[in-house]
Simulated scan of single mutants.
Amino acid sequence: MNIVLEVNNVYKSLSRREIIKGISFDVKEGEIFGFLGANGAGKTTTIRMLVGLIKPDKGNIRIMGYDIQKNLVKALKQVGSIVEYPDMYNDLTGRENLIIFSRMYGNVSKERIEEIIELIGLKDRIDDKVKKYSLGMKQRLGLGQALLPNPKLLILDEPTNGFDPLGIIEFRNIIKNLARENNTAIFISSHILAEIEQVCDRVAFIDKGIIKSIEYTNKLKNNEEYDKVELIVKEQAKGAELLGKLEYVKTIDILDNKILLSIEKEAFSKLIFDLGKNNIEVESINKLHQNLEGRFMQIVEEG
């Protein structure tokens, strides 16, 4: 797959405070890439750089090979985006908003506008004034505006704000179809971890301006046959000898001062009991997280 978005060693300071500290990642065509971090981690600053609202201090950002600092217009021609809340003309209808934005993009046919209206699920309300729309409907219309030029890269910041559960499911299907059928690269930032897990292929975890990890979501899902446990004991050899005798312990790996175990489901409390019963002094014991929410919390706690 071709790389659509490439971020290379980017730094950014605001008010003399370093916000972004050398981040690097890429997004490939047909890929849905999640961007996760706590408030103040650097998500919004990154997105503002991606859409050309602010410039990086160091490093470079390329979209379809165009450096955003040297060829901003050519780079942004490849991009559709919803950053924060989409701008609308509230006294105009949804259709009139799409028509105005289509003229800004140029070369958007009437057929494309009708196709977008169908895609975003606003066919029955498209001729109502936008001021009568719910927040979720405005988000749908914003998505439609972003999709008018058939962009190679779609950048979405908290796109499901205001959606009801059915709207979230429909939005998820729209995004997946865009990636699959149009080969669109999608960069999505959201605080709804379960939604990111459902829709994204890869996820970057950012904390205090640093990308801590980039991981495939299918490897984070808790579909393992056994639970994973990380253990540190005072006497490692003695601990490993005991663990080798416990029938619910399936594998043991020694990594520096840590013992990594796979154990039967629901056997974690038994493990703690047996360690105590056999006078194994435990310095640390953790069940390793197997889903996106758990992995996110693990990274935040480490940070």
Rank of each mutant, 00 (worst) to 15 (best):
Gln198Cys: 14
Asn183Asp: 05
Asn218Ser: 06
Asn182Met: 11
Ile196Thr: 10
Glu215Thr: 06
Glu225Cys: 01
Tyr216Thr: 02
Leu220His: 14
Lys176Asp: 07
Arg172Ala: 13
Ile210His: 11
Glu224Arg: 08
Asn183Glu: 05
Glu195Val: 11
Gly209Met: 09
Arg202Tyr: 12
Ala194Val: 08
Asn222Asp: 13
Asn173Pro: 11
Asp227Pro: 01
Tyr226Ile: 08
Asp227Phe: 01
Glu225Ala: 07
Asn183Val: 04
Asp207His: 12
Ile232Cys: 10
Ile210Ala: 07
Asn177Pro: 02
Ile211Pro: 01
His191Thr: 13
Asn183Ser: 06
Asn223Ala: 03
Asp201Ala: 07
Ile232Trp: 14
Gly209Ala: 07
Lys176Ala: 05
Glu215Pro: 05
Ser213Asp: 15
Thr217Cys: 15
Glu215Ile: 08
Ile196His: 07
Arg180Ser: 00
Gln198Asn: 11
Glu195Phe: 09
Ile210Gln: 09
Lys219Ile: 08
Glu225Lys: 14
Ala194His: 12
Arg202Pro: 06
Phe171Leu: 02
Gly209Thr: 12
Ala185Thr: 05
Asp207Ala: 14
Phe205Gln: 06
Ile210Met: 04
Ala194Gly: 14
Glu230Lys: 01
Asn223Ile: 08
Val199Lys: 00
Glu225Gln: 06
Ala185Gly: 14
Lys219Asn: 11
Ile196Tyr: 11
Ile214Ser: 03
Arg202Ala: 03
Arg180Gly: 00
Gln198Pro: 04
Ile174Phe: 07
Arg172Asp: 10
Leu231Glu: 03
Glu225Met: 09
Ser213Asn: 15
Phe171Trp: 12
Ile174Cys: 05
Asn173Gln: 11
Ile186Gly: 08
Gly209Ser: 09
Lys234Thr: 11
Glu181Asp: 05
Ala185Arg: 00
Thr184Arg: 00
Ile196Met: 13
Ile206Phe: 02
Asn222Val: 05
Val229Asn: 03
Glu224Asn: 10
Ile206Thr: 09
Ile214Ala: 08
Asn223Gly: 15
Glu225Arg: 11
Lys208Phe: 03
Asn182Ile: 04
Val233His: 06
Leu220Asn: 14
Lys228Pro: 02
Arg180Glu: 00
Val199Asn: 01
Ile188Cys: 14
Ile175Leu: 09
Val203Tyr: 09
Ala204Asp: 09
Cys200His: 08
Ser213Tyr: 09
Lys228Cys: 04
Ala185Ile: 04
Ile206Ser: 04
Lys219Gly: 03
Ala204Ile: 08
Val229Lys: 02
Phe205Val: 10
Tyr226Pro: 07
Ser190Thr: 14
Glu195Lys: 11
Ile186Lys: 04
Glu230Thr: 02
Ala204Val: 06
Asn183Arg: 06
Phe171Val: 01
Ile232Gln: 13
Lys228Gln: 05
Asp201Thr: 12
Asp227His: 02
Ser213Gly: 12
Glu170Trp: 03
Lys212Leu: 06
Cys200Pro: 11
Arg202Lys: 15
Tyr226Ser: 09
Ile211Glu: 02
Glu230Gly: 00
Val233Gly: 01
Ile206Gln: 05
